[in-house]
């Protein structure tokens, strides 16, 4: 279980998180929604230690994330970055098997390559892409490779940061389905950051809405349309008028 309690984070005068509280039960798929620039990505970067919160506590399975050995802690996670964040200088299979080629999970290169190709197959890509460079792939293919990298070491917890941003609706649907299938078959705990409502409905067990630096509402996906929260209603229906201020 992941638990964030009263987490604050500011960048200069810009207070991004103002006491965020969030609980994600083990094995559940939590989708965090909210407008652009509301700090959704900062939320998961705080959990991973990529960004240090100013105050508050973050626990994974009851352990404070600032007090656990970093390598062992990070080995439990997989992350799909918004832009893919594939390493330009490495071929696709080495990107996917990055964790298996070095560090505590190191395997022989041939075995790591085999696992990488298997994971590529899992995300719908053939072995022919294994030796290509990321720059030779389309945006959708890069997202798939990034997804294969996120699941390669079979993590217990997976974060997806805007997994469908920049993709056409069909490719976005494919990625959504893949995420749902993979999370279910791996039994992983997942947090997905998105403002794409199609993704929310495809991926989520639970939904949380971040607004004003705080989690305004959280509940099962089945309750999303009857949340009773005017902020959630405005967001999920994409209304320009409502409590969420918009610039026109």
């Amino acid at each position: 279980m992941i638990r964030m309690t009263d987490v604050h984070k500011a960048f200069g005068a810009n207070k991004v998180l103002r006491g965020a509280n969030l609980t994600v039960p083990t094995g559940q798929s939590m989708v965090v929604i909210g407008g652009s620039g509301t700090g959704k990505s900062i939320l998961i970067k705080c959990i991973l230690g990529l960004v240090q919160p100013d105050s508050g506590t973050i626990e994974v399975d009851g352990q404070d994330v600032t007090r656990v050995p970093r390598d062992a802690f990070l080995a439990r996670f997989g992350m799909l970055f918004q832009g893919g964040a594939l390493f330009d200088s490495l071929p696709v299979w080495q990107n996917v098997a990055f964790r298996l080629l070095r560090g505590s999970l190191k395997r022989p290169r041939a075995e790591a390559r085999e696992i990488a190709i298997e994971k590529l197959r899992r995300v719908g890509m053939g072995p022919d892409v294994a030796d290509r460079l990321p720059a030779e792939l389309s945006g959708g293919m890069q997202k798939r490779v990034s997804l294969a990298r996120a699941i390669c070491a079979e993590p217990e917890i997976i974060f997806f940061d805007e997994p469908t941003t920049g993709l056409d609706p069909i490719m976005a649907g494919v990625i959504n389905d893949l995420i749902r299938e993979i999370v279910t078959e791996m039994g992983a705990t997942a947090i997905t950051i998105t403002h794409d409502m199609t993704s929310v409905r495809a991926i989520a067990d639970q939904v949380a809405m971040l607004h004003g630096g705080q989690i305004r509402w959280t509940g099962p996906i089945a309750d999303l349309d009857q949340s009773g929260d005017p902020y959630v209603d405005q967001f999920i229906h994409g209304r320009p008028t409502g409590p969420i201020e918009t610039l026109r």
């Binding site: 997989g78 832009g83 964040a85 594939l86 330009d88 964790r99 070095r102 560090g103 505590s104």
Partner: peptide, 16 residues
């Protein structure tokens, strides 16, 4: 470029 495309963050999440 690696920094602005989150590749440095990706390295950290891959325990590197």
């Amino acid at each position: 470029t690696m920094k602005v495309t989150e590749q440095l963050d990706a390295l950290v999440t891959l325990s590197t």
